[in-house]
């Protein structure tokens, strides 16, 4: 578990990259940190392995503050995957992957076995790729090597800084799938920085949304979609995505007011506008009514018959307001 406690980062030029941030990255989970560029997400991640140090506040790993830990030692115990060309072009794939084990002075057999194991893990045949150089590999293959290189020293924590952003869409999706599968196998605490919401929703156990050095919301992808904390989070996730991720039954009655009328069509069941369609249906069924009176704070918003609900289901794509 990585805990940030009231962390502020001020750069010498006075800009505040992080403002009083407190957050916990749970153990064995893949947490995605997302936000527009300049929101401080990369700075946040780089603090975990002391590439940046906090101006105020404290960071601890498994309840031990990292302030007193030696930088080099700490970094060797944390995997690090960097955007684009993190591989060393003058070293073979084998030398790249074995870098941290060599820094940790593992013995030769153990290191060699580890390299073979890791390359196989991401589907690169060791006999074919071990002696090749990074530039002889495709972008997707290179980043696969980048990922396993971070695993080489068997760290508990892995930091990934927009690792797939430079790849073409097909390799990117492939690598996202692979990362998910891999994570199920290796169960590491992963901090993954990206600006791509689709990527975040796809791979994350937990998403941390940031803006201007602050955390706007932290929660599971489902929580973000169902209960965006504010307008920024909602617009950052995007309406399309929210709608795509939710079934009709998960949406709320108040989203469909434009479909419903203001005239009561008979005796109606009083229900709050925040009720989901699914709930509304089950309540209708158990109550014996066939009409709904949709209210908000006692004020009537609209009336809906079961026929209106069918209309809403048919027009759900057109209804824009969330």
């Amino acid at each position: 578990m990585i805990r940030f406690e009231r962390v502020t980062k001020r750069f010498p030029d006075g800009t505040e990259a992080l403002k009083d941030v407190s957050v916990v990255f749970p153990t064995h989970k893949l947490t995605v940190v997302i936000g527009p560029s300049g929101c401080g997400k990369t700075t946040l991640m780089r603090m975990v392995n002391k590439l940046e140090t906090p101006t105020e506040g404290d960071i601890s790993i498994d309840e031990e503050s990292i302030t007193g830990l030696e930088e080099v030692k700490l970094r060797r115990s944390i995997g690090y995957v960097i955007q684009r060309i993190g591989l060393f072009p003058h070293m073979t794939i084998e030398d790249n992957v074995s870098l941290v084990p060599r820094l940790l002075e593992w013995d030769k057999e153990k290191t060699a076995a580890r390299v073979e194991e890791l390359l196989k893990l991401v589907g690169l045949e060791p006999e074919v790729y071990k002696k090749r150089y990074p530039l002889e590999l495709s972008g997707g293959q290179q980043q696969r090597v980048g990922v396993v290189r971070a695993l080489a020293g068997d760290p508990n924590i892995i930091l990934m800084d927009e690792p797939f952003s430079a790849l073409d869409p097909i390799s990117r999706e492939q690598l996202q799938d692979d990362l998910r599968t891999l994570q199920q196998e290796i169960q590491k605490t992963i901090v993954f920085v990206t600006h791509d919401m689709d990527e975040a929703l796809k791979i994350a156990d937990m998403v941390v949304v940031m803006r201007d050095g602050k955390i706007e919301q932290a929660g599971s992808p489902q929580e973000l979609i169902n209960e965006p904390a504010n307008d920024f989070v909602r617009s950052f996730i995007g309406l399309d995505r929210i709608n795509r991720q939710r079934t009709f039954g998960e949406r709320k009655l108040e989203e469909f007011l434009s479909v419903f009328g203001m005239e009561p069509a008979g005796e109606a069941l009083r229900i709050s506008g925040g009720t989901t369609i699914d709930e509304a249906f089950s309540k209708l069924e158990s109550s014996g009514y066939s009409n709904l009176e949709i209210v908000d704070d006692g004020r009537v918003l609209a009336y809906a018959s079961d026929r209106d609900l069918v209309k809403a289901a048919l027009r759900k794509e057109e209804v824009e307001k969330v």
């Binding site: 590439l51 030692k73 060797r76 960097i82 060309i85 993190g86 060393f88 820094l103 971070a150």
Partner: peptide, 22 residues
């Protein structure tokens, strides 16, 4: 390339190791 050095630093190479190996 700065990102190459950054990768070395992030993986826990000392300054001397970065100089000699990268």
């Amino acid at each position: 390339d700065g990102s190459t050095i950054e990768a070395g630093r992030g993986m826990g190479m000392t300054r001397t190791q970065i100089l000699r190996q990268i």
